[in-house]
Design a binder for these strands. Structure first.
Lengths: 338, 338
DNA sequence: GCCATAAGATATAACGATATAGTGCGAAGT
DNA sequence: ACTTCGCACTATATCGTTATATCTTATGGC
């Protein structure tokens, strides 16, 4: 019933180690032999047993996805991207939601890696940006790829996929400036996320690029949540000079700002334009539909996983890749009123 | 470095088989011996190696979560519920998103079970309601628990956790009737989902219970999507006599209806009350916040997983459990206008 | 032509659990 | 008193791979 490596070896007339060499792309096998083995594998529909590989070998063929993020859309996209890369490369995925601020988070993660002998980890913010956690993982020599906000790949990053949030923020802010807005506010996300810092920097950069002054009253501290968006927008609307546009640090905050505007009877976009960041599905389900910045999360996760697995195969080490988020113009932004 | 069963056996002064018996709660071990072994396990911080268990034993200690559902909130909730049960019981989770209408879906799932020797499957709609898929799984004698819409546990269901969507729909429709609404419309979800049928039946039941007539023009076919909600609500708003309230088959459809109402300049809830179903996070992020029906998805998934694993342990077979979704009153419903 | 070396393959020991067969010993049956 | 039985436990085979050590055969250098 079950086809094992022994069956393949017998069928191909070679030893099991040779079959193992072929399935693992190891050197020292003649092409003729490789072909013999491969056709035996195909003929018998052989699939290596993961548990046995795991037990005998040093690689587990299992990668872990570690996250601490309440954004379901983001997580699902990431999972799907990782999963598609895993499927292509014969790996399996272990998902591990966690609390990055838990006291024992380092032990939790290192135990996870050790107990499951994980081949690698995909880390998302804020875990991917926490030096204490990274140090703990380095100590046990764990493989990981970080998904982080940043502008260019460099060796200090380790293996990383960068999302250039700054450039995305510059583009979307420029979009507002191009519409004639001069009083543009910023609703920030959690400060533990580097993305918040980068998006804020991009917002400021765009203002500066256009000789617009930076008004500190227009930069509101907050968190990556709907409620924070509601509160932040309320605060903005109370000010003597109201902004004519708001850059929200993500779509949820933007949705909260939309909500607050409605509470105060402010029409969006006629009176105030609002933009989000992320292009999550619900940015298409608000009224009006949100202008936002698109991040190809599934692709980001796919590439990250490929990098991670490639590293283990000792291929020419590619250190990372940078993604440029692009604006998506919908209905929550318009020309500033004369 | 790594603690194995041999270390535990040596430390406790027994054979490895005895340790195995203790860790698996098998009979024929004296209490004194059990205590000795357990204290050795604790002293050495022993954790059984999953790969070895998997390879040697008949159980894999891995359960699969199979889903075909674009609703990220739902999936994340389910994953978390399954994961928490798995953690308690020493199991691992393999997630498997798929396309339930793919031609080779049966082979895909049976191969998945066979190749990973999955201990069991958690199936969600529409997969959990597809007789062809269930038959294929029965054929290979796979263990599974179904999460389905229904009213009572019975042996025909196999292992199942039921969500009494009908009662939820009755309650929420009754809420509208209690507010004085007599012209209540229904926006349906996909007809492949039993939940659609059940929710429609509950809606009708509530009308009947209150001697209100069922108007077929007020029952609009659709799908579980925002766009479908937009279209359905548009159709309703065009009718000669507009409904004063709408029951949407889920929150996404309700959000779509909200959007369509705004497009047409119809005030919610002043002119029309709208209710959703599911209580997903974004039902709190719409304007106005949605009145909806709460489903404890995480708990449902947790219980389902416990049932699944308990079955494999040959405990007194409990067949299932029924959940009653309850209305959550927010701001999208109000007294009908005099 | 002979030895050193590498390439290509094999035989077999691990990996860390569970499963199977078997042992010793006290209690019960005749 | 002698077998029989069942409980509590041990010794060891086993699962399906990878890893290690070893063997054989070609290849090149002198």
């Amino acid at each position: 019933m079950k086809v094992t490596i022994n069956d393949v070896a017998k069928h191909a007339g070679v030893s099991i180690k040779t079959v193992s060499r072929v399935t693992n792309n190891e050197p020292s096998v003649k092409q003729v032999t490789i072909d013999k083995v491969n056709s035996a594998i195909k003929a018998l529909n052989y699939q290596p047993n993961l548990a046995a590989r795991n037990l005998a070998g040093t690689k587990s063929y299992v990668i872990g996805f570690i996250y601490d993020n309440p954004n379901a859309y983001y997580i699902i996209d990431m999972q799907n991207g990782i999963l598609s890369a895993c499927k292509d490369l014969g790996y399996e995925l272990l998902i591990h939601p966690c609390n990055s601020t838990a006291a024992n988070i380092c032990k939790e993660l290192t135990d996870l890696v050790k107990h499951n002998r994980l081949s690698g980890l995909v880390l998302t913010p804020p875990l991917s940006e926490d030096p204490v956690i990274l140090a703990a993982l380095d100590e046990i020599d764990a493989n990981y790829v970080r998904i982080i906000a940043g502008e260019k790949v460099d060796t200090n990053n380790g293996l990383a996929v960068l999302v250039n949030d700054r450039s995305g923020a510059i583009s979307i802010t420029q979009h507002l400036i191009d519409l004639g807005h001069k009083h543009i506010a910023f609703l920030s996300g959690d400060h533990e996320h580097a993305s918040t810092k980068e998006r804020l920097a991009g917002y400021k950069q765009a203002l500066t690029n256009n000789q617009l002054s930076i008004n500190d009253d227009f930069i509101i501290d907050g968190k990556y949540s709907f409620e924070s968006g509601v509160q932040g927008a309320k605060d903005l609307l109370k000010q003597r000079t109201r902004p004519t546009a708001i850059v929200a640090c993500n779509d949820e905050i933007a949705a909260g700002a939309l909500f607050a505007a409605r509470l105060e009877g402010v029409d969006i976009p006629a009176e105030i334009s609002i933009v989000g960041f992320e292009d999550s599905p619900f940015s298409r389900q608000t009224w009006p539909k949100l202008t936002t910045v698109h991040q190809p999360n599934e692709e980001i996760a796919h590439i990250a996983t490929e990098l991670l697995i490639a590293k283990r195969k000792d291929k020419p080490a590619q250190l990372g890749k940078v993604f440029l988020p692009e604006p998506v113009i919908r209905d929550s932004t318009t020309q500033v009123r004369g």
